[in-house]
């Protein structure tokens, strides 16, 4: 065993990285531009209104979608963030999280549908997803930086890689859980595969898919601190700075702001579907 020389996996990965940079540089530039544009615009919209107006609007939204108790939490929580002086940074982080989540949904749901329709595709995707979820996030920050340079864009890319698996997995699961007899009934009435998907499978899988999207949003929020290490501005950079300076007070304040955002995003996305059902 000792005679076998070390297998040069690291070298191979580096030469692949170099090769991709050479040949796909243009593509990476386009991706960078698109993601950068999305983050900027979401941030622009979020900072368009004065904080207090947005806070009241979000509180009203919470009231409508969840309930009055939760709207009080929203009001107090967001006022606290503003009071601590984290408002702008939080909005930067939220733009990153929303961009990563939207892209995860847009990419993840079609992949999930593909997994549900083809068992072969699923058996290819499963190890890839496992790899994406278990590989330490720091490791793919490096090629992300090398492809997209420092800033918010590699942060979004890293967040997508880390956060997309639940959307894919639960879309697949949701569609596969549609009872076989219902699929058979749709077939018996002469549905095309697309009709079957949009009239039966996706509507019935929606609660499961929403659970996946909810997890995706939570996971990409958990990436804000790591993303800040490569220059993505936001609340995460405060946490990161607090860690490097061993400043418990600031770290705690920024941490509370992240927790408040997390609870808010979680409850609101959890209830998107439930409210829809009630309206019916």
């Amino acid at each position: 065993m000792m005679d076998i020389p070390k297998i040069p996996i690291g070298d191979a990965v580096e030469s692949i990285e170099k090769w991709m940079k050479t040949y796909f540089g243009g593509l990476f530039d386009i991706i960078r531009a698109v993601i950068g544009w999305m983050v900027d615009n979401i941030e622009y919209v979020l900072t368009l209104l004065p904080p207090i107006v947005l806070i009241v609007l979000l509180a009203l939204l919470s009231w409508r979608m969840v309930g009055w108790k939760f709207s009080i939490f929203t009001l107090i929580g967001l006022l606290l963030i503003d009071n601590l002086g984290f408002w702008e940074l939080s909005m930067k982080s939220v733009s990153l999280v929303l961009t990563a989540s939207i892209l995860s949904i847009v990419i993840g749901i079609p992949i999930g549908i593909g997994c549900a329709k083809s068992s072969m595709f699923r058996s290819i995707m499963t190890p890839v997803l496992d790899f994406m979820q278990t590989m330490p996030a720091f490791v793919y920050l490096l090629p992300a930086v090398s492809f997209f340079s420092l800033g918010v864009v590699p942060g979004v890319i890293a967040s997508i890689i880390f956060a997309i698996p639940p959307t894919i997995r639960l879309t697949n699961l949701g569609i596969r859980q549609v009872p076989a007899e219902l699929v058979e009934a749709a077939d018996a009435f002469g549905s095309t595969p697309a009709q079957k998907l949009f009239k039966l499978q996706l509507p019935m899988a929606m609660p499961t898919i929403m659970a996946g999207i909810n997890q995706t949003i939570m996971l990409s929020l958990s990436m804000v601190v790591i993303a800040s290490m490569i220059g993505a501005q936001g609340i995460g950079s405060y946490v990161y700075r607090a860690v490097t300076q061993a400043n418990t007070g600031i770290g705690f304040e920024a941490g509370i702001a992240i927790v408040i955002m997390a609870i808010l995003l979680d409850r609101l996305t959890q209830n998107v579907f439930k409210t829809k059902n009630k309206a019916n």
Binding site: P179, E181, L182, E184, A185, A188, F189
Partner: peptide, 8 residues
């Protein structure tokens, strides 16, 4: 047309 045992 078709009618199913468990209604479907």
């Amino acid at each position: 047309g078709m009618v199913f045992q468990k209604f479907a």
